[in-house]
Each structure stands twice: as C-alpha cells, then as structure tokens.
Design a protein around this nucleic acid. Structure first.
Lengths: 220, 220
DNA sequence: TAGATTGTTAATCGATTAACAATC
DNA sequence: TAGATTGTTAATCGATTAACAATC
C-alpha cells in the first residue's frame, strides 16, 4: 500500500467530517451523498470526494456513503480507535479544565496530572490525583505514555518539552504560547488561544469591508 | 485607501509575527531583516515580505524592519490597540480558566461571566462575579458589549449564539463543539479542542511515514 | 559610493473546483 | 435498464517562492 503524502489541509478537515457524520448517525441517517453533505457543511461536494479519496473509496456510485461506515473509517484514519494514555503537565486553571474534558471519547485517557506547586499535590481532578513533576520521569516509564498535554507557563514550556522528549513522549499538545524546538519525530500541535482571539479581533475590526461568510467555519 | 481582500492564511500568520517581534523587543533587538526573522521563524523571507506588504511598506531597503515599529503596526492591524469589553457565557471549568487569562494584554477585557447554574452565582473569578444568564440581555445593553466567549455545552450553544446576535454581539469566540449558524456580519472564531487533538492523533499514528518538521508550527 | 535589503513582479507550486466516464 | 452518484482526471484558482530592480 503506497503511502502518499496527505496535505495538512485535508487532515484538518477530517475531524469536521467526523463530527458531522457522528451527528447524522445520532439522527439515524443511514446514507448520505457528497452533495447532501456538502450542503450541510457548506463546502463543495468535490472537496469532500477528493478528501475522502486520499484514503480510499468509501462510497458507492449511485448510492453515496454509508454514514456509519464512513464515520468509523475516518475515526480509524484519525487513530481514534486505539486508546492512548495521556498526561497533563501543568495543573493550573487550563490544565484542570482540560483534565475534566471527556477525551476518552476520541481515544485519549488522562491518567496523570503534574505540577510543581506543592499546594496542588493530591488534589483529585476527575478521579486523577495531581502529582509533583519530580515523579514525572518514572511515571512516564511505568505507564508507557506517548502523549502529553502541556499547560505550563511560557518560561518553563521549552525545557519541560525537551525533557518529555528524552523521556519518550512522542506527541505534545502544546498550550504554552511559544514554539517548541524538538526533533522531527515528536509531533507537536499548538493551541495558541491568544493568537486565536487575535484573528477574531482582526475580523471584528475589518468586518464589513469584505465578505467572511461560512469560510470561518473551516479556519481553525 | 483601497481595501484589498486579505487572505485568511495571511491573517492567521500575523499573531505569530507579533509574538516573535514582541520577544525580540524584550531582548532589546532594534532592527531585523526578513532574512534573519525567516530563520528564527522557519518560514521564507519571501513570505514575510509578501505578508507585510499586504498592509503597507513597513521596512526600509538596506536596513530591514524596525522591531518596535513593526510590532506596533501589526498590533494595530490586529486591532489590539483598542480595548474591547468581553463577556464569557458558560462558567464551567473552561469558562473559568479563560476568565483567569490575561487577555487585557491583547485588548480584551472580561467584564462579565454568565451561567445558568445558581450554585455559581456570585462566585468571583479574577474579580468578576458570575451572574445568571437571565440578566445577560440587560448587561450587554448597559455595557456596550460586542464580543462574547462561548463556553457552554453543545446543546445550548446555537440558541444562545442566536440570542447574542439579536442582542448586538458582533464577534463570538466559540468553544462549543458545533458550528454556529449566524448572519454574515457576526464574526465567529471556532476553537474546537477535540478536533485539534484529533489532528495530533493522526500525526502521531502516521508519524515517520512522511516528514512533518517545522510546518506544524503554522498549522493552527 | 558599495552593500544590503526591501517592495514587487514573475514563476512555481499546490489546493480547490469542475467535469465526466465508470459503475452501482 | 435508467438514474444517481461516485472516483478521478483536467482546469482553475490561489498561495508560496524566487528573482530582481528600486532604493536606503
């Protein structure tokens, strides 16, 4: 099976397909055409078909796509079918908020929360007790963890990220407002909330000078 | 002054320029060339110059760019120079975490937090007391609010968004995992955290099959 | 002036959309 | 079979990169 290079534009759209298909599934819709889905999602049918065909032919001519099948297949492509253990580094407001999220639903199980603040030690968030970071290395080894969420202050983010890398972490979901400099085989996904708000600020200020319309749905 | 259409790809890069320039400023760097900045940011110098020239000529041949001037100008383009009052709807974990953020720094002042849970009434987050949503309409009118952060459950998101629109809100920072259907003159910026994590999941699973490298910095 | 670096035009590259033959 | 809709190729569109004349 030849692995072609999938563009990140396509990958970023997959979760949205997954979400819409999940909703169709909840509404007991059995099949859907790219045309119908394109209307609901406000994208072109062409794009949907192109995107999906990067991964294989999931539809059937004259019929469309089976909602449940397509939903599951996209889930597999995204890797949501296999559960990954995850830790959260930084148990501040955001870290605790994320710990309360139900990410199990998409294959991520929070099994550890870490901080340097001794006041937080032992405090349980969603059944997981906050531990001190000096136990982090051992914990990662003991539990075969490959994914870490980073919600520490900017100053500490880079050095902790480097350590996480040496301890075997392969993917970092980074909420610290800085770019991490790691080797290429560590996946980093940045969530820079302040930068997100800045783009909203831009659009608010320049609103009306141009058309924004539905495209904003896709600009993650 | 002719307003050309600025592509969203450019707009999404502006906050990152702003951040790098801010750091240079902190390090007392007075001037920088597109070449030097391109190396630090791991983008092409060409892209930097093209991006900036969408908004005007901020540099000088043979010299480069004055860091402070460029930083300030990008801040103005993003609209960070004018303060906007903001409210947060939904005082759950995420809502409270966001209320604790220092968004004043980029021109957004949280002056109200709202929820339907009577248990939260009066609880102060960063000096702002949580109020009940039935006072929302009056509050928006009294304080001339145009920006709202939406951190309510999926089920309620759309109906609240619709109401916010009728009450005069012009920009919504939406954390609910759903697309909002509003008129075109309401700006919506979605932050779908679960979808962000899904793309990380994809990259983790397909890691090594292709090169990811620095490009991940830019995929917000 | 000579060197450096911009602003901007032209070339390339990639992503989106359109079209349609294949086929259920 | 006829109608519908995919998978896929071709055309278009837009974004990125390269090149270089302008100019500080």
């Amino acid at each position: 099976m030849s692995e072609r290079e999938i563009s990140s534009a396509v990958i970023r759209r997959l979760p949205r397909y997954y979400r819409y298909l999940g909703e169709l599934l909840e509404n007991n819709v059995v099949r859907i055409s790219s045309k119908e889905l394109s209307i609901r999602m406000k994208v072109t049918a062409s794009q949907i078909r192109q995107d999906l065909n990067n991964f294989g032919g999931f539809g059937q001519q004259g019929y469309g796509y089976n909602v449940e099948y397509l939903h599951d297949e996209i889930g597999k492509i995204l890797g949501l079918d296999a559960t990954q253990n995850m830790i959260i580094i930084g148990a501040g407001n955001l870290g605790q908020a994320l710990a309360n999220y139900d990410f199990d639903r998409i294959g991520f199980k929070v099994i550890g929360i870490f901080d340097i603040n001794p006041r937080l030690e032992g405090l349980a968030v969603r059944g997981v007790e906050i531990q001190m970071v000096d136990t982090l290395e051992q914990f990662i080894k003991d539990h075969e963890i490959h994914v870490a969420t980073l919600t520490v202050p900017k100053k500490q983010a880079r050095s902790i990220a480097k350590q996480l890398e040496t301890w075997g972490i392969r993917a970092i979901w980074n909420f610290a407002p800085t770019d991490l400099h790691l080797s290429e085989d560590v996946c980093v996904k940045n969530v820079h909330l302040d930068e997100s708000l800045m783009t909203l600020s831009y659009n608010l200020r320049h609103r009306g000078k141009e058309k924004y319309s539905y495209k904003s749905y896709m600009e993650d």
